[in-house]
């Protein structure tokens, strides 16, 4: 039921190439339209002007877990007409508590037809299977690119804030995040860390996780080994590479299947562990600050 979780791990080849194409998609989005802002009306071709301050959208639908986080941080609750099914899952959504009580959508186009949203936010929303099933209507769409750095998170925060009609909130949130991050030390001191996921997937450079590592002064093992954004590294290779730290996802610390069992293998017992909740790193969003702070604290303590 929650197989939509497979953003990064496990998808093997497909996910790996997906991660790369998502990244390049983000770059194109930024280069093309300033802050990756893309208003696409289905009937009138070309971008339509940004929302007027007086005309805040009142029925916003999110098609993407990351869009959920921004909406919950920036929009009024009564503006939100629908979030994705993982929005209330604390393992995946950093704003799960805030999402409670709001409407959670399935993957049916019918629900969207019924809501008649005046704004839809999603990743590559034009390719969304839900929207493809809808009859051509004049929905306003915002494409949310895949954030791989804090700079992109800041840009997206402003983008969504403008789209939902709360420009000031966006500016304030960005300022707060920048202030919090500026105060963080860099206890990593150039030591090597591996972001090691279940079943041996290694998160590479050009990702949000890599951005977090750099911020904490760590060097990503994947970069050292010249691996792509997502690769598979056997336990043997990891042991032989001798990273100073492995960063694992909090949910994977509990052995629930063979994929997580591997992360508890005795061969890893000598490597220091840093545990981060997946909810803070799976999406670019306000939780980035929490992830960075936790990483720095755990590094300082070790």
């Amino acid at each position: 039921m929650k197989r939509g979780k497979l953003f990064r791990g496990e998808g093997a080849m497909a996910a790996s190439s997906g991660a790369r194409s998502l990244r390049s998609g983000a770059v194109i989005g930024l280069a093309g339209l300033g802050a990756a802002l893309a208003w696409i009306g289905a009937a009138p071709a070309g971008p339509t002007p940004a929302a007027q301050p007086g005309a805040r959208p009142r029925r916003i639908v999110s098609l993407n877990l990351c869009a959920d986080q921004y909406l919950l941080a920036l929009a009024d609750r009564d503006q939100i007409a629908g979030l994705t099914r993982n929005a209330t899952d604390p393992d995946l959504s950093a704003a799960a508590k805030d999402a409670r009580g709001l409407r959670i959508l399935g993957q049916s186009a019918e629900e969207i037809l019924e809501i008649q949203p005046d704004l839809i936010i999603g990743a590559r929303s034009r390719r969304s299977p839900v929207l493809a099933a809808l009859p051509a209507q004049d929905y306003r769409l915002v494409d949310l690119a895949w954030a791989t750095s804090f700079a992109q998170i800041a840009a997206q925060t402003r983008q969504i804030a403008d789209a939902v009609g709360h420009h000031g909130r966006g500016a304030a949130l960005v300022a707060r995040m920048e202030r919090d991050l500026a105060g963080l030390p860099q206890p990593g001191k150039g030591r090597v860390a591996a972001y090691y996921q279940r079943r041996g997937y290694l998160t590479g450079t050009g990702t949000l996780v890599d951005d977090l590592m750099q911020r904490a002064g760590l060097v990503n093992l994947a970069g050292r080994l010249d691996k792509p954004a997502l690769s598979r590294l056997s336990l043997e290779e990891l042991v032989a590479a001798r990273p100073d730290f492995i960063i694992v996802e909090a949910a994977a610390e509990k052995v629930s299947d063979q994929g997580t069992e591997m992360l508890q293998h005795p061969a890893l017992r000598g490597v220091r562990r840093i545990v981060l909740p997946q909810a803070w790193t799976v999406c670019g969003g306000p939780a980035y600050v929490r992830a960075a702070r936790s990483l720095v604290e755990q590094l300082g303590a070790s």
Partner: peptide, 26 residues
């Protein structure tokens, strides 16, 4: 596996039906 709360069921089904002894410990 589909009923279990495990989101990685698809991958795990393959392991159980085709077998693997990778990453085994004592």
């Amino acid at each position: 596996l589909n009923l279990s709360p495990n989101p990685f069921a698809a991958m795990e089904i393959m392991t159980w039906l085709l077998g693997s002894i990778e990453n085994r410990s004592f």
